[in-house]
Design a protein around this nucleic acid. Structure first.
Lengths: 141, 141
DNA sequence: TCTTGACCTCAAGTTGACTTGAACTGGCAG
DNA sequence: CTGCCAGTTCAAGTCAACTTGAGGTCAAGA
């Protein structure tokens, strides 16, 4: 299995070298050695990075991800935490769906103020339901 | 219509007074005057704040919200922007759904490494589809 | 009238996730 | 052997969205 240097990992993962170093610092990924002063990574790090990106998109912080993806492969994940996060996502999804519907409606509805539109209000109500539990962060392109 | 002072708005909206001042600074909300040195708000600001909270949960930044909720009421929203955001949300929702399914699966699956599990891989593939467009930020409780 | 305490302003601090800059290193082409 | 330059370290900067702190104001109650 041939090893990758940081620029290769960056190129293939779309994650900048500076971010990769940052991730290593945080314990999210590990390099397997150095050639001289330069880090070397196993190709499997690409999968880890994909998971990390996904996790971020799902609203996990890097710290959370570090916690649920321990150094070794085979993410020895805390099942309860996973299920809890899945439930969170359910909430979020329901809310975002209502948001989306509200947006589409707002784009089409002729009401002078959307606050006066029962349909809009109804979407908002659904969207706001449950006190707005957890959401997800804007991905830097 | 009786006016509200900042603490009343904070109490009824769940948004801290410091955040309300910050929002006013940013032009997201407006006070209608002062009693002495103290801001006074019209009750309608509560609806605006609800929209803002919702928008944030939907992944809009405060600047975006300021742009689509102009000072006057009756959000004169840019319909194309709304529809575009709705499409974004569709993407996000699809991705989050796959994430959630992957999480539930990971919590149940006995495979030694999830990378070796076809089901998990499949979810990830769906979740990653489309280059991860837009996501939503963690709500501060 | 005087005191109080909620509110005010403005600057600086905080957190997460990185990026950037300066100064250094070392494998490899020539 | 020598330079080049991608890579390295470490500290500091950035951005969004607020929060916190210091010091000032003023309407209302005693």
């Amino acid at each position: 299995m041939k090893l990758l240097d940081i620029s290769e990992v960056a190129r293939r993962s779309g994650v900048k070298a500076s971010a990769l170093r940052y991730y290593e610092d945080k314990g999210l990924i590990a390099s397997v050695g150095r050639r001289g002063i330069r880090r070397l990574f196993e190709p499997v790090v690409l999968q880890r990075l994909a998971l990390i990106r996904l996790g971020q998109a799902g609203g996990f912080s890097l710290d959370e991800l570090a916690a649920m993806l321990p150094p070794d492969d085979a993410p020895t994940i805390d099942r309860d935490a996973l299920l809890a996060k899945a439930d969170d996502l359910d909430q979020t999804i329901r809310r975002l769906s209502a948001m989306r519907d509200a947006l589409r409606h707002a784009a089409a509805c002729p009401a002078p103020s959307h606050f006066e539109c029962a349909t809009f209000q109804r979407y908002l109500k659904v969207a706001a339901k449950g006190g707005l539990p957890a959401a997800v962060p804007p991905l830097q392109a």
